[in-house]
């Protein structure tokens, strides 16, 4: 297990490095940030000085070397837009997205386990059919469209919820709701599939034969085994939820990492783009490693290997 984990961590670090090098060079191709940050009629000398000061004139590999040097000091560069260290800006945005994602993922998981197990209990029964259509619809919904339709209904027409911004519970309802929809739809399908397999397996027959109560059969015997594939899929959903967060944060004006990244890309704020990518990749890969550990804890066959 320990050997497996260290291998996993090593390959994660490799993946982050690869991603990072790729983004660094790609980001440099977007064009001259001077065009965006200086007035249109800025004289040539001012432009030159601007590029000189921020090191945009150096050949790209020297810029990369400099950047690596700074990285070892824990310095991820300086935001052009906000004139603050990039890492500070990113670290302010991360908790917003994480809390959004954590709440959404918890709701999606709990909901999927309940609905999926009930649907799997009688495959092709009436509840199963309804939940199949509803969950597939949820998995097919374009989140930005659901978001603006929800704003139209609940904010503009009914006036129940605020259109955007952060604050108390009312501000959370729509963003969370929209973030939950697609993972919930996907996870219900996965839970249903693995629960059907678990419920028709021998150990469930044994449990029933020795007179275990039906509730205990489902939630204690079948679910614990049925959950394993669900956990894997939930891990893949970590990156998907980040995708959703980009859309939700942009529409509802949440100052999270998704909105920060979109804004920084649009304004060629290299340092912030790089810092956000690095931190996001680290967070997603750590979540995946934690999920691997959870998997091992739940499955004794892996734990004892």
């Amino acid at each position: 297990m320990r050997q497996y984990l260290s291998k996993r961590i090593f390959s994660s670090i490799l993946a982050i490095t690869g991603l990072f090098v790729m983004v660094f060079f790609l980001a440099r191709l977007t064009g001259d940030p001077g065009h965006l940050y200086l007035p249109i009629d800025a004289p040539l000398e001012v432009r030159k000085e601007f590029s000189e000061k921020h090191g945009f004139n150096d050949p790209i590999y020297i810029q990369f070397g400099k950047f690596l040097g700074d990285l070892t000091d824990g310095n991820l560069g300086y935001s052009l837009r906000k004139e603050r260290p990039a890492i500070d800006i990113v670290l302010e945005a991360i908790p917003v997205t994480l809390s959004l994602a954590a709440v959404a993922m918890t709701i999606a998981l709990v909901g999927a386990i309940l609905i999926g197990s009930l649907a799997a209990y009688r495959p092709n029964g009436i509840f199963d059919r309804i939940s199949r259509v509803v969950s597939l619809t949820a998995a097919s919904a374009p989140d930005f469209w659901v978001a603006i339709t929800a704003i139209l209904i609940f904010s503009v027409s009914l006036g129940w919820l605020p259109t955007s911004g952060i604050g108390g519970v009312p501000y959370w309802i729509m963003p969370i709701g929209i973030l939950v929809i697609r993972p919930l739809g996907l996870l219900v399908q996965v839970v249903r599939g693995s629960m059907i397999t678990a419920l028709s397996s021998d150990f469930v027959k044994t449990a029933r034969a020795k007179g275990v109560k039906e509730k205990a059969v489902i939630f204690k015997h079948a679910l614990r085994n049925g959950l394993l594939p669900v956990i894997t899929v939930a891990g893949d959903q970590a990156a998907a939820i980040a995708n959703g967060a980009v859309i939700v944060e942009t529409i509802f004006g949440w100052p999270g990492i998704g909105k920060l990244m979109i804004d920084s890309i649009m304004q060629r704020d290299f340092a912030v783009v790089q810092a956000s990518i690095l931190i996001t990749a680290i967070v997603i890969l750590s979540i995946n490693i934690i999920i691997d550990i959870a998997y091992a804890v739940l499955d004794p066959r892996i734990r004892h290997k």
Binding site: L26, A27, D236, G258
Partner: peptide, 23 residues
């Protein structure tokens, strides 16, 4: 397979935004 890991370890939407904004 490491290439697949790199692509999967990052939100595809953001990757696409970055690339499309550049080209």
């Amino acid at each position: 397979m490491r290439l697949a890991d790199i692509i999967m370890s990052f939100p595809s939407l953001l990757l696409a935004v970055i690339v499309l904004y550049m080209f």
